[in-house]
């Protein structure tokens, strides 16, 4: 028995050595994979920018990053050669968003359309993640207050500062379905302190869907649609629908799109999209964003 055991050990040594000599490396990599658990990682770059087209995406600027956006919407495409199909008639939006932390951003913006100012806060409540503690979706909250800066109308008295204000709260529930496809569901609540006619509702509920599909590493097509849950619009009114492309070049993201929304702030494109896809009163436009690392 003793003899046998020592023979066994020698045989085992020999076999083990032979085995290691030939397949050791692959065996070691497998052993390593078994010993080291894959970490839980948040899913990144669900969307290329903080907006899908008009509506917010789940993304926020990283901590210490200033995200600067210049956006234009030209006049309607069906306005004819005299207006160069809308190019003579641009509306502009300038926005600064700052990442206070990786999960919290604050922003200010100014629109030429209705001379509207914006102040906003955006928070990533939940993040989609992969790994042992995977989570299926990202949930980001967005709240914005908007102030109309036009001269007070003469036919409304009294006209207080509060008349100028409107608010939007929304949740962006997003999922990166695959490397190429990302989808978002965006319920929104719009409150307008002042509305044009008594027919118009002060409070509106909408649910939006948005998505992007990557055609190449740096090019994607994007779209969004907002469905009204509150019935208050006249017949023929066209809900907000936008289609576009994202082009990424280094520190810039260019978003080119066609939309029936005239304004680029939430009250306007959610509650008051001026154009219609049916008659071609659409606006061509772009968002151009650039990030600056203020604090690293």
């Amino acid at each position: 028995m003793k003899v046998r055991a020592s023979f066994a050990r020698t045989a085992a040594l020999g076999l083990a050595l032979a085995a290691f000599g030939t397949v050791s490396a692959q065996g070691l990599l497998d052993a390593l994979n078994e010993a080291v658990e894959d970490p839980t990682l948040p899913v990144t770059a669900t969307f290329k920018d903080t907006r899908i087209v008009n509506v917010q995406s789940n993304e926020t600027p990283a901590e210490g990053v200033l995200h600067f956006v210049i956006a234009h919407r030209f006049g309607t495409l069906n306005s004819g050669a005299y207006e160069l199909w809308g190019l003579d008639n641009a509306q502009m939006r300038m926005a600064f968003d700052y990442g206070v932390t990786d999960r919290l951003a604050v922003g200010v913006a100014r629109n030429t359309y209705q001379k509207t100012y914006e102040a906003s806060i955006k928070a990533r409540l939940l993040r989609q993640s992969t790994g042992p503690d995977a989570f299926p979706v990202s949930v980001t909250w967005y709240s914005v207050a908007m102030a109309n800066g036009l001269k007070a109308p003469t036919d409304v008295t009294p006209y207080y500062f509060t008349h100028r204000l409107s608010y939007v709260n929304q949740a962006v529930i997003a999922r990166k379905m695959s490397e190429d496809l990302s989808l978002a569901l965006v319920p929104s609540f719009v409150h307008r302190n002042y509305v044009q006619t008594t027919e118009d509702a002060h409070d509106l509920w909408l649910v939006g869907v948005g998505g992007r599909y990557k055609l190449t590493q740096r090019l994607s097509i994007n779209g969004e649609y907002h469905h009204y849950l509150t019935q208050q619009f006249e017949e023929g009114f066209s809900p907000s629908l936008s289609l576009g492309v994202d082009i990424e070049t280094g520190g810039h993201v260019f978003q080119l799109h066609v939309t029936n929304a005239r304004g680029m702030f939430e009250r306007s494109f959610l509650a008051e999209p001026a154009g219609s896809w049916a008659d071609g009163s659409l606006y061509f436009g772009f968002n151009l964003s650039r990030v600056f690392t203020i604090k690293s």
């Binding site: 083990a16 050595l17 290691f20 000599g21 050791s24 490396a25 065996g27 070691l28 990599l29 052993a31 390593l32 994979n33 080291v36 894959d38 970490p39 990682l41 600027p61 990283a62 901590e63 990053v65 990786d102 520190g251 990030v291 690392t293 690293s296």
Partner: peptide, 20 residues
């Protein structure tokens, strides 16, 4: 016993100065 080795890194665990 024989100098065999295996190393691996998670690409996602590389951290840069700038988030972008």
């Amino acid at each position: 016993s024989n100098g065999g080795f295996a190393f691996q890194v998670q690409m996602r665990a590389f951290h840069f100065e700038k988030a972008l």
